[in-house]
Amino acid sequence: MSKPQPAADLAYAHLRDLLLSGAYPGGELLSEGTVAAELGISRTPVREAFLRLEAQGFLRLYPKRGAMVTPVSPGEAMAVLQARLLMELFALDSLSTEPDEAVRAVGEDLLALAAREATEGSASPTGPILDTARDFHARLMRAGGNSVLAASHAALWDQQIRVSAASTSRPAHVAADIEEHTALARALADADRAAARDLLTRHIGAVGHRIGLAREPRLPSPC
């Protein structure tokens, strides 16, 4: 028999799913009392959930007033996507120096994960989809073989996920994200290194396009 979920974890999961689905737009003020009443729990676990979400950048707490949903500014979104592009291209380039069979093995692993995304995309809320997307990119980072960079990428994900949430707020966006993951994974499964690099660059650029950035995130050209 499984143990009941702790109230703070319940509140966190509830709020996170609503934030990721766009039910709480940027600038909205949330009340501990209202959330506690909705879930039938006390305010203390809701306060703990607020603190966790503040640490992840989702909320900004105001004593005795509540928590404001933090908007994602265009500047923050661009910086996050540029950091992603820099790290993930480095990982992909590192993987590309490996023998074909190693590159293909990573591609097959990512293809299986993309297939799971497709199943979740037709049946699950936004939160689980973003968790699977996180796993997809984390596996790519680990395949690059630089554990320090992979850890930095994971630490950045709390900011990434806020941007990713905005980019998967519609079913068509979710479908496009999964299609892009599948194409990238297939290129790796074919050991087509050049295609994989191009697809990764376009994939992260498409995230910027879907959230309305005026220009796509790109790395500066070497001198």
Rank of each mutant, 00 (worst) to 15 (best):
R116A: 09
E117A: 12
G121A: 05
L95V: 06
K64C: 01
A118F: 08
L95D: 08
P99R: 04
A118D: 11
A77L: 08
A79R: 15
T97E: 15
E101Y: 12
L85E: 11
R60S: 07
T97S: 15
K64S: 11
E88W: 11
G66R: 01
R65Y: 02
L61R: 07
R60L: 11
R65Q: 12
M78L: 15
P71A: 01
L85N: 07
A79K: 12
S122N: 10
A105Y: 02
E88A: 07
Y62R: 09
P125C: 04
E117P: 01
L111C: 11
E117M: 15
S96M: 09
L59N: 01
L110P: 09
G121H: 06
A118G: 01
T119P: 00
G121N: 05
L95N: 07
R104G: 06
A118E: 15
A114V: 09
A105I: 06
S96C: 14
Q82N: 13
R84N: 13
G75C: 02
T119D: 12
M78F: 10
A79E: 14
G121D: 09
L89H: 11
V103M: 08
V106E: 10
P63A: 02
A105R: 13
R116P: 04
Y62M: 08
D109I: 00
S124K: 09
E120H: 12
V72Y: 04
L81Q: 06
A67V: 03
A105Q: 12
S96E: 10
R104P: 12
A112L: 09
S124E: 14
D93H: 13
V72I: 12
R65S: 05
A112G: 07
S94H: 14
M78D: 11
P125E: 08
A77P: 07
S96N: 12
E117R: 07
V80A: 14
D93C: 09
G121T: 06
A91M: 09
E117I: 01
